[in-house]
């Protein structure tokens, strides 16, 4: 569903993403981990068409992103790291706007609002939302239209423990439904529990890739925290 072939992205002299290749099949959750500035968000932005790769190829559901067809993005649900909303729109109005642009059914809006626990604030202006509520609204927007591919950049930031657990279950059910999920996070316990495969990025390069068990075996840290596994791989 997601195919990244030898993708490179430069900002002047800085190589933000350096010859990265990865494949994510349907029914799989792929976690991207790495320190700040490792290139995770840049790769994700390229995958949703916000940024353009300098070299390489990006395919979503076998459609080449470089052709910039709006239909390609119909398969996508995206949660950006930096959430910007119209502060003077209510949560419901914002989701109606996103549903309209995605050509999704409005009937899904109350379902998502209820699931993410912000139905009570649906008629309030987004400007009055807390960080967690804004994140939940972003997640609602990403889920609208039931996309086949979910790309979630740091979805746990600002979420409470209960919602983290709920999100994990939701991602697992999306995987059961045959969808491809690419998620970036710094919460290693979440990454280990939810993902089928983990990709470790460092200075723009994909330095390690495999199932959590495989990465444990690779580092020889079978009983330690997954955080230690990450540190060993990322160093």
């Amino acid at each position: 569903m997601i195919k990244v072939e030898s993708v490179t992205k430069r900002y002047g002299n800085l190589v933000a993403v350096n010859n990265v290749s990865l494949h994510i099949r349907g029914g799989e959750i792929y976690a991207l981990v790495g320190a700040n500035g490792a290139g995770k968000s840049t790769l994700m932005r390229m995958l949703v068409g916000i940024s353009e790769a300098d070299a390489g190829q990006l395919l979503i559901c076998d459609e080449d992103l470089s052709r910039r067809l709006p239909t390609t993005k119909k398969h996508l649900g995206y949660l950006p790291e930096e959430l910007l909303f119209y502060d003077q729109l209510t949560g419901r109005e914002y989701l109606q706007l996103v549903a309209g642009l995605k050509e999704a059914d409005d009937a899904q809006i109350p379902v998502e609002l209820e699931f993410f626990g912000i139905a009570h604030a649906a008629k309030k202006l987004v400007g009055g939302y807390s960080l967690g509520m804004r994140k939940k609204l972003g997640l609602c927007a990403a889920m609208l239209g039931s996309p086949e591919v979910l790309i979630l950049d740091e979805p746990l930031n600002g979420l409470d423990v209960e919602m983290m657990r709920k999100l994990r279950h939701r991602l697992e059910s999306e995987r059961e439904a045959g969808k491809a999920v690419l998620v970036s996070s710094h919460v290693m316990s979440f990454v280990e529990r939810v993902s089928n495969r983990v990709g470790v990025m460092r200075l723009g390069k994909l330095v390690a890739e495999g199932t959590p068990d495989h990465l444990r075996q690779q580092t020889g840290l079978l009983r330690e925290d997954f955080e230690d596994v990450f540190f060993q791989l990322a160093e």
Binding site: I50, P80, L101, A141
Partner: peptide, 15 residues
């Protein structure tokens, strides 16, 4: 730039 509409780049909206 730095506007809520930046999100629409990731949606099926034609150029």
């Amino acid at each position: 730039q730095k506007r809520p509409a930046a999100y629409f780049e990731a949606l099926p909206v034609a150029a």
